[in-house]
Design a protein around this nucleic acid. Structure first.
Length: 672
DNA sequence: TTATCCAAGATTTTT
DNA sequence: TCTTGGATAA
């Protein structure tokens, strides 16, 4: 973490102590915003507001965890009991779980991820063959999500009368009805449904407002319109509320984030106080100067200028390379040399890039150079097919209406239940307006399907019912383990995997998932029902947790998005080229500002030094293409930049600095 | 029902 | 160039 001042600076103090007015804290990068939130929680409790009346909301599990830990360090356990620190989605889930009846849901709610949503939409499109539609399913799925994030209901979407979106609007309605039938919600619903509920039933809102008497919101610039509605409802008309944000770090507009919420706050709460935190405790002067100058090219909701007490520090460097292979090699070799020269650790370095695909070459190169690295982002644990399968089984055990889960696992592992059978089952269930699982037990099904098929379905379903029963009553996890065992799932993984190693990895993932859920259960005094657990698990990412535990000494590889909120002594910003950063599609859509903020986020991650690098030629989609250095490089203070690369560097130095052979490097390492 | 091939497309992704 | 998913053949 950045060094914090021994005591809070005047602005931070003002932010902590202001509790009578709604408060907006404009916290620049590295200005100690997490500290302000945690200190404020401690202050509120010190002023006599019990912890269980305070809620702090973040966007990531990681941020929530960090906040909990840091609040815990300020206060003793007793005082902090009941404090709610969670993600938006976890808060929404909690509301839904407690108020499900008011929304017409049964208690065991399934949570659908994007894949589930897309699969369901695909089904819905198939069911309506007269609609000639060329748009891919993903486009509709995305549009529906956009609507949900922008607080547009299905009815409102239908009334938009936009022929381009008519099909999506129709699907939105069908989808919403179908989800209700499945007793399922998606991630966006976790925010949207509580808002709709509170609007319709003020007495429930009052209950929750009574419970949450002070609300703190982290990364406020990332809230979407629906989340803002939820904040406004919970904070009430008085606005017992502190939000902390930075419009310069808004990099999620493409996902529905609405940084204008910063201004809206001023309109909705005339008594709003605004406090700016501009002192930076992270970076050296030159880095801040560069960051300030770059971001000055964007229009601003609020003016803000970062400064720091640190010295000017080292100049910013720009490296030029002939191609991406040279780029990767030179950076790898620089890290080796620099680390050796300064006695730094691997984990002091971060290599940041715009797109995930850029990591691949760097991974390979770092391996060649024997540099340990950590890759964050990429595929999440829950994207693994084996994890999704097991979760689908668990979902079906707790929620028999979850057709998505049913379809996913009915023939995984193979049970000789093919599409023909499922098609007929689906038609029957549709006619009877029931789920696929309940349909299997109906007598009428026997007229539709051959007896063998019915038998197979029933045998499987009866087994599930029996398992669910025993899991409810007995030792839940013993039952689940036995269930997975009897499924023959591991055997199936072995058979279907290409290599033995892949199979072992998948099996390990399954164990990890179950073990993790069990630990989660054991933490709670009263064992929560399985359905709660399954829902909760959907909101977490186990990989994230692993990386926390893994405090090993590794170079960090991540996207600029993933880097937000983190800091490193030495930062490499690679691929500083037009069409890469700013990204091509953003140029086409004329959305340079968000790209500029991405660059800004990248620069402000650095404590001591930033190194930019670009290539003059690069392989793209398998073809060598010419590249132009990013326009953002021109927007930086030229006098603080030190260019090196083929134009400016003399051949001797180049040889010495960049092109050391692998053998030389190995020698260097062994000497050490 | 499953295996294999081919064509299209290729940002970012907190939950 | 690599991945993904849909179509097609066995």
């Amino acid at each position: 973490m950045a060094e914090c001042p021994p005591s809070l600076n005047p602005q931070q103090q003002a932010a902590v102590k202001n509790m009578d007015n709604p408060l907006l804290v404009l916290a620049g990068a590295g200005s100690g915003k997490t500290r302000v939130i945690t200190e404020k929680i401690a202050y509120l409790i010190g002023q006599g507001l019990p912890a269980w009346h305070i809620a702090a909301v973040t966007f990531t599990n990681k941020a929530a965890r960090e906040m909990k830990v840091r609040a815990g360090a300020l206060l003793d356990d007793k005082k902090i009991r009941g404090l709610r620190v969670s993600t938006f989605h976890a808060l929404g889930l909690d509301i839904l779980r407690r108020e499900h009846a008011a929304l017409g849901f049964k208690s065991a709610i399934s949570i659908f991820d994007e894949q589930d949503r897309t699969a369901l939409l695909r089904e819905l499109i198939k069911q309506n063959p007269d609609a000639v539609d060329s748009d891919p399913v993903e486009a509709h799925s995305w549009q529906i999500s956009r609507w949900k994030n922008a607080f547009v209901t299905a009815q409102q979407a239908c009334r938009l009368d936009d022929p381009e979106l008519a099909e999506a609007a129709r699907l939105y309605g069908d989808y919403t009805r179908q989800m209700k039938a499945y007793n399922a919600v998606d991630f966006d619903d976790l925010i949207l449904l509580p808002v709709l509920l509170f609007q319709e039933q003020p007495e429930l809102l009052e209950k929750w407002c009574n419970r949450i008497r002070y609300l703190l919101v982290d990364e406020y610039q990332d809230t979407n319109l629906t989340q803002y509605q939820l904040i406004k409802l919970l904070a009430g008309s008085i606005g017992r509320l502190t939000v902390v944000g930075d419009d310069d770090q808004s990099i999620y507009a493409w996902r529905g984030a609405h940084p204008e919420n910063l201004v809206q706050l001023q309109k909705d709460y005339p008594r709003l106080q605004v406090i700016k935190l501009e002192q930076n405790y992270r970076s050296s002067g030159r880095i801040l100067k560069a960051a300030n100058q770059l971001i000055a090219n964007n229009p601003h909701l609020f003016e803000k200028r970062l400064w720091s007490n640190h010295g000017p520090g080292e100049p910013l460097r720009v490296l030029s390379h002939g191609d991406e292979i040279t780029e990767a090699r030179q950076i790898a070799s620089e890290i080796v040399h620099h680390r050796f020269k300064t006695g730094s650790r691997y984990r002091d370095y971060a290599i940041l890039y715009r797109g995930n695909h850029q990591s691949r070459l760097f991974e390979r190169t770092l391996r060649e150079y024997d540099i340990p690295y950590n890759l964050s982002g990429g595929t999440s644990f829950f994207a693994y097919a084996e994890v999704k399968d097991i979760l689908a089984y668990l979902r079906l055990l707790t929620n028999p209406d979850d057709d998505s889960a049913f379809l996913r696992i009915i023939n995984t592992p193979r049970r000789e239940i093919g599409t023909g059978t499922l098609e007929k089952l689906g038609q029957y269930a549709n006619r009877r307006h029931i789920g696929l699982f309940p349909a299997c037990f109906e007598l009428g099904l026997e007229q539709q399907l051959p007896e063998r098929a019915v038998q197979r379905l029933r045998r499987f379903c009866e087994w599930l019912v029996d398992t669910a029963d025993r899991a409810e009553r007995g030792d839940t996890f013993a039952v689940i383990r036995e269930f997975i065992d009897r499924l023959g799932y591991e055997q199936w993984l072995k058979e279907s995997s290409k290599t033995e190693r892949a199979a072992q990895r998948k099996i390990a993932n399954v164990h990890e998932l179950i073990g993790w859920m069990q630990r989660l259960t054991d933490q709670e005094e009263k064992h929560p029902p399985l359905s709660d657990l399954v829902a909760k698990v959907m909101l977490f990412d186990i990989l994230e947790r692993n990386q926390e535990e893994n405090v090993s000494d590794r170079v960090n590889l991540m996207t600029l998005h993933a880097a937000k909120g983190l800091e490193f002594p030495y930062v490499f910003l690679i691929g500083m080229e037009e069409n890469l950063l700013p990204h091509q599609t953003s140029i086409e859509e004329n959305n340079i500002e968000e790209e500029r903020r991405l660059a800004y986020v990248g620069i402000t991650r650095a404590q001591k030094q930033v190194t930019f690098s670009y290539c003059t030629r690069r392989k793209r989609y398998g073809e060598m293409t010419d590249c132009t250095p990013s326009r953002f490089l021109d927007e930086l203070p030229a006098e603080e930049l030190e260019w090196s690369g083929k134009q400016s560097i003399d051949p001797e130095e180049k040889k010495e600095r960049g092109m050391a052979s692998l053998a030389q490097l190995r020698d260097l390492l062994t000497e050490q």
